[in-house]
């Protein structure tokens, strides 16, 4: 997990990135739902969804490698399925579902800057306290992960015990300092915000825009393709 790559691909300019984030969320989540819920996926359907997603990734000018790597994150989990009797037969469809869903999510978050994604989720009904927490978390994760990495490197330099328990305890000390630094930073941030008149309400400088023609066109085209693949190659 590398913090500097939180949403680094979203700086690549592309037609997909410029769409309203809400239509991207709705389109890709509906693909995930279809893939997860359709009772029996045929190989043609799997190939169809894969083709649709890869075309989308190409349209978004996303590099293939990181997309594939992250979609394969489900592989270690498959061990739990595959070792069972008749598990290999089960593992195929589960792998297809897991990997296609992950690919859809990587494309969504790689073609959408995180603040835009959050505003879309907020307007689609994610509860406000969570949205606000996530937006602060996004800002401070970079700082705290940097801090944690520096502290961790220093700990690795001085943690030379062969005893696991001693290592664990000394890492506990590192995490405690990280907690205190984070807590104190949180207090300072709050104090600075209170001094500037923060009252619990976040106000945006630029009000969110409405849906445009191309957003609706994209949504309609995506829905049509999704439906076509699901029905035409459904098999049953």
């Amino acid at each position: 997990m590398q913090h500097q790559f939180f949403d680094h691909l979203s700086s690549i300019p592309s037609p997909l990135r410029d769409l309203d984030p809400r239509v991207k969320v709705v389109a890709l989540l509906s693909l995930v739902l279809v893939v997860v819920l359709w009772p029996r996926l045929t190989s043609w359907q799997v190939l169809g969804y894969l083709g649709l997603l890869l075309a989308l990734a190409r349209w978004a000018r996303l590099p293939l490698r990181p997309l594939v790597e992250r979609s394969l994150a489900v592989v270690p989990f498959l061990a739990l399925v595959a070792v069972a009797p008749r598990g290999l037969q089960l593992a195929g469809p589960i792998f297809a579902r897991g990997a296609l869903s992950a690919l859809a999510m990587v494309i969504l978050t790689s073609a959408t800057p995180f603040p835009e994604l959050l505003s879309a989720l907020a307007r689609l009904g994610l509860p406000r306290p969570l949205v606000l927490i996530l937006s602060f978390m996004y800002r401070y994760t970079f700082i705290l992960v940097d801090e944690a990495e520096r502290m961790y490197r220093a700990w690795q330099g001085r943690a030379v015990s062969r005893q696991r328990r001693v290592l664990w305890q000394s890492l506990g000390g590192v995490i405690a300092s990280l907690f205190l630094r984070s807590y104190e930073r949180g207090e300072r941030v709050y104090a600075a915000m209170a001094a500037r008149g923060f009252d619990g309400e976040i106000r945006l400088l630029s009000p969110p825009k409405g849906l445009r023609g191309r957003d609706l066109f994209f949504l309609a085209a995506f829905a049509a393709l999704l439906l076509a693949i699901t029905i035409a190659w459904g098999g049953n």
Binding site: M1, P129, I133, T141, L144, E149, E187, V189
Partner: peptide
């Protein structure tokens, strides 16, 4: 109260960062 938002965001980031620190098992 209203402090929760910045503080909770920072503390969530802390949990996220702390989860990155591996220890030998």
């Amino acid at each position: 109260e209203e402090r929760q938002v910045p503080l909770l965001g920072v503390l969530s980031a802390f949990i996220f960062a702390a989860q990155m620190l591996n220890f030998p098992v």
